[in-house]
Design a binder for these strands. Sequence first.
DNA 1: CATCAAGATTCCTATCATTGGAAGGTCAAT
DNA 2: ATTGACCTTCCAATGATAGGAATCTTGATG
Lengths: 144, 144
Amino acid sequence: MNIGKASKATGVSAKMIRYYDEIGLVRPASRTGSNYREYDARELNELRFIKRARSLGFSMAEIEQLLSLWRDRGRPSREVKAIADKHVADLDARVAEMKAMADTLRHLSHCCAGDDRPDCPILADLTLGKEPTTGKLPKRRRDY
Amino acid sequence: MNIGKASKATGVSAKMIRYYDEIGLVRPASRTGSNYREYDARELNELRFIKRARSLGFSMAEIEQLLSLWRDRGRPSREVKAIADKHVADLDARVAEMKAMADTLRHLSHCCAGDDRPDCPILADLTLGKEPTTGKLPKRRRDY
DNA sequence: CATCAAGATTCCTATCATTGGAAGGTCAAT
DNA sequence: ATTGACCTTCCAATGATAGGAATCTTGATG
């Protein structure tokens, strides 16, 4: 099965399949005589695994760990659970941050007349240069 | 006031001040005879404005709009409110997505014994290659 | 005044995951 | 044989930020 079919079968773009190949997230694909990448059921499963994990917000680094655990049939579920739990905590923290941002803005917007007059508490607040109400933002570690 | 002082006064790194300068988010800073950037109170305020807006999760594009509205003393507050409200809606949507992710993972983790045995519903779920429970993820448009 | 460290300048590099395109080789069907 | 769809590699760009190198300026001290 070539990369196009594999892409359709897994929902991972051909570009990204090549990229995962390049960075060694998946083992280098075997090649046909004409240098086309070839995929079998096993590799399709890995690609689906990656896709699902990305959609759950796991970083590539986490996926690398999860993949190696997944490949190891004897691994203790404890290890997987630890990664998942850490990720849940991460997600919860980010949700809290964003919720605080949204609430702050919602409040400001609610106090803004939103009419033809120039008085606007939103801009007034921005002008203050205050620290964010949520405290310093942590570094973003990943996209999701 | 040189860039180092401006950085300390606003909390925006010198690197980022130069970057905002370079991309035209702020007007090109005036220069001393020896080519040092010079900042006055007005520009410090703009940098604080940008910092605060970033901390509220506005994208650079949004900040560009907000800045031009902020500079225009006669603008209707309606325009500012519209940007803020759109952003609140964006944030709410992202919060909902991430909450759904966290909940899905939390559920999976809860079902995982987390012991020495290899059976793990988390990996089992990832193996399915299902569509995310939250539906397709929208493109991330920004960091925050 | 000479010197030296701190701090300014520009330019280049990297991040992370993803997308886009160009140039060129291959496959399948007509 | 031609055509069009598909594959290959390589290069560039995204957005916001950080790091570093090379070079120049400033300000303080001996």
